[in-house]
Computed example of a mutant assay.
Amino acid sequence: MIVITAPTGNIGRHLLSGLLTSAPAAGEELRVIVRDPARLPDEARGAVDVVTGSHADADVLDRAFDGADAVFWLVPPDAALTPHDAYIGFSRPAVKALAAHGVGHVVGISALGRGTALADRAGIVTTSLAMDDLIAESGAAYRALACASFFENFLEEADSIREHGFFTDTVEADRKAPLVAVADIAAAAADLLLDRSWTGTGSIPLLGPEDLSVNDLARIMTAQFGRPVRYERQALDDMYTTLVGYGLNEAFVQSIVDMKRAKDEGLDAGITRTPETTSPTSFEQWCAQVLKPAVLS
Rank of each mutant, 00 (worst) to 15 (best):
A117T: 02
C287F: 06
W73F: 05
A173D: 04
V51K: 00
L193V: 00
A173Y: 04
V295G: 11
G245Y: 01
R233N: 11
I204Y: 05
D268W: 12
D237T: 11
L206F: 05
V51T: 03
I220W: 00
H164N: 15
M131F: 09
E157W: 13
T127M: 08
F167L: 13
P209T: 10
V60S: 00
A136M: 05
L194T: 01
T170F: 15
F283L: 00
Q224V: 15
A97M: 04
G247E: 01
T222I: 14
N249F: 10
A94Y: 04
P76K: 03
E276V: 07
L15A: 03
D258Y: 02
S203P: 00
I271V: 15
A56M: 09
L236W: 14
D85I: 03
P76A: 10
P205D: 10
I4C: 05
A141H: 11
Q285S: 07
G165S: 13
A44T: 07
V48F: 10
T277R: 04
A44D: 14
D132Y: 00
G200T: 11
A64Q: 01
R45K: 09
T8L: 04
A188Y: 01
D211N: 15
P293H: 02
T241C: 07
R31C: 01
P76H: 14
S203Q: 06
S160Y: 11
F65M: 15
I161Y: 09
L40R: 00
G202N: 05
V244C: 04
D191Q: 07
G18E: 12
S149M: 08
H101Y: 14
P293C: 07
R63D: 07
K263Q: 15
R45T: 11
L206Q: 07
R13C: 03
F252V: 14
P209V: 07
A251F: 06
T272E: 12
T168L: 15
G270H: 10
D211W: 13
S138M: 14
Y87F: 11
S17A: 14
E265M: 10
G18R: 15
A136D: 09
A144M: 02
I124A: 08
A173Q: 09
E284N: 06
V103H: 14
S279R: 14
Y231S: 10
E284R: 04
I88G: 03
D191I: 04
P275N: 03
T272P: 09
F252Q: 14
A79M: 15
R162K: 06
A58T: 01
H101N: 15
D49W: 07
E163K: 10
